[in-house]
Simulated assay, not measured.
Amino acid sequence: MNNINNNPVLDFAKNLADTMVYAGRHALDWVLQASWKKLLLTSLLALITGGILHLSSLANGLVFGAIIAKLFADKDKAASNPQTE
């Protein structure tokens, strides 16, 4: 028999995982580069939108995850790249 390893469901899952990693990295880059004011305004809008769409638990997780990432990543960035005058 001719064995063909062409599984469209597996290809879709791999492409979906690659897309999620790509989107997550770019979202994290935006969170780290954005100011606190912009991050808090975006977080407030995300919480309101999540409440309207009945996705409040997802919105809460994303918002608090972004705030925690910004808190800890800023400390790591400042410790690894001290500014010299």
Rank of each mutant, 00 (worst) to 15 (best):
S43G: 13
M1Q: 10
W36Y: 06
K37H: 14
A73F: 14
Q83R: 07
L32D: 00
L47C: 13
P8L: 02
L44I: 04
G50R: 01
I4N: 02
L55I: 00
D76M: 14
L28T: 07
N7Q: 06
K37V: 11
L41V: 09
A23L: 15
T49V: 15
P8M: 07
G24N: 09
L71A: 12
G65E: 07
I68A: 14
R25T: 14
L16W: 11
L53T: 07
G51D: 00
L39Y: 01
N6C: 07
D11A: 12
G50I: 00
K75P: 02
N81F: 11
L53A: 06
Q33N: 14
I67E: 09
A59V: 13
Q33L: 09
A17V: 04
L71P: 00
D74C: 02
Q33F: 03
S80T: 08
A79Y: 06
L32C: 02
G51W: 12
K14R: 13
L10R: 09
N5G: 02
S35Y: 03
F12D: 04
V63A: 06
S35G: 15
P82C: 06
A66W: 01
G50D: 08
N81P: 06
Q83T: 15
K37Q: 05
V31H: 08
M20G: 04
G61Q: 08
N6P: 04
P82R: 03
L16S: 11
D29I: 01
L45A: 12
A13D: 04
L58M: 14
L47P: 05
T19Y: 13
A23K: 12
L32S: 04
I48G: 00
A13N: 04
N3V: 07
D29E: 10
A17Q: 10
A23D: 11
L40Q: 07
N3A: 07
F12S: 11
P82W: 05
N15A: 05
F64Q: 10
K70M: 07
D29L: 05
A13I: 11
A34G: 02
K14V: 06
D29N: 00
G24K: 03
N2C: 03
N7M: 12
K38P: 02
M1V: 07
F12T: 05
P82Q: 11
F72V: 05
V9C: 07
A73Y: 08
V21D: 08
V21R: 01
P82F: 12
T84E: 05
G24E: 12
G51K: 09
S56T: 15
S56V: 09
D18G: 13
P8A: 09
I52A: 04
L28Y: 02
K70H: 03
A78D: 06
A23S: 05
L71I: 14
L45I: 01
H54Y: 13
L32E: 03
W36D: 15
M20H: 08
L10Y: 00
A34R: 01
H26Q: 10
L28R: 12
L28V: 03
A59Q: 03
L62D: 06
A69H: 05
L58N: 15
K37A: 11
A73Q: 08
A46I: 08
F72T: 12
L71K: 08
A27V: 04
F64K: 13
L40Y: 11
L10S: 09
T49G: 00
